[in-house]
Amino acid sequence: MRSAATRPAERLFTVAVWAAAGAVAAVFAWMLADLVAAGAARLSWSFLVDAPASAGRAGGIGPILVSTLLILAVAIAAALPLGLGTAVWLAEFARRGSRAARRVRLALDVLAGVPSIVFGLFGNALFSVWLGLGFSILSGGLTLACMVLPILIRSTEMGLAAVPEDWRRGAAALGLSRAAALWHVILPAAAPALSAGLMLGIGRAMAETAALIFTSGYVDRLPGSLMDSGRALAVHIYELSMNVTGGDANAYASALVLIALLLVINGLAALLAERWLGRRIVTS
C-alpha cells in the first residue's frame, strides 16, 4: 500500500535519476559534437600523410602517425613477452595464495596506480639519461611498456583463470606436456581475453601524453630510426593547443584521428580474437 506522501517523493527520485543520466549523456554528446564539428573540416587524405607546416598550424600529421605507431610497436614488443610470461606463471604455475604470487600481484597493483607523469620521470631517468637513449622513440616506447604492463598481466591472468579446469585435466590425461597444453589448449581458449587485454594496453598507450613528453620528445620530423625523437599524436594535440596559437583546428582534427584509431584498434582486436578462437579450437 502506498500512502499519498510517498508518491511525490517517488516521482522526485525518478526524475532525479533520469536527470542525472540525461545530464551525463548531454554533456558528452556536446563534447563529441564539438570534436566532430571542429575537426571534421580539416580531415582529408593529405592531412593524414603530409608533414606538419608552420609548427603544425598547417599541413598534416604524417610523420606524427609514423612516430606514434613506432612508439606503440616498441611498447608492445617489450611488454607482451614479459606480460604474457608473468600472467601464465601467475595463473598456471604459481601455487594458489603462495607468498611469491601474492607479492608479484601486490607489486603489479601498486605499479598500476603509479601516475603516468611519474612513469615519465622514471623513463627519463632510466632510459633517456642512465641508459643514454636520449629523447627517442625507444625511450618513449619502453616507458609506455612499463606503464601498460600491469593492465596486460591483469587481463591475461583473468582470461587464463576463466579456462575450464577440465581442459587442463583432459590435456594431462592425453599425455600432453605442460608446454603443449598451454600452446594448443589453454592459450587459444584464452585468446579473446588476451586480445582484449592487448587492446586495453594499446588504447592506454596511444592515449598517453604525460609519460612521453620527456622520453620520446617533441620532434615532428619523420623519424629515421628508433633512436630519433618522435612526437606522438597525443603529444601533438597537447603541443598544438597549448603552445601554438592558431593550432586549435589541427588539434581538433588530430584528436578525431586519435579517437578513430582507438575505435579501429578496439574493433580489430575483438574481430581477431573471435577468428583465432574459432580456428584453433575447432581444428585441434
Binding site: G85, T86, W89, F93, L108, F122
Partner: peptide, 27 residues
C-alpha cells in the same frame, strides 16, 4: 621444454614485479 618452462616464467614474473622496485629506486 616443460623442465625449463617453470623457471623461465618465474624469472619473467620476478622481472615484472621488480619493475616496481626499479621505479621506486630511480625516483
Amino acid at each position: 621444454v616443460d623442465a625449463a618452462l617453470r623457471p623461465a616464467l618465474f624469472a619473467l614474473a620476478t622481472a615484472s614485479a621488480a619493475l616496481l622496485a626499479l621505479v621506486l629506486l630511480f625516483l
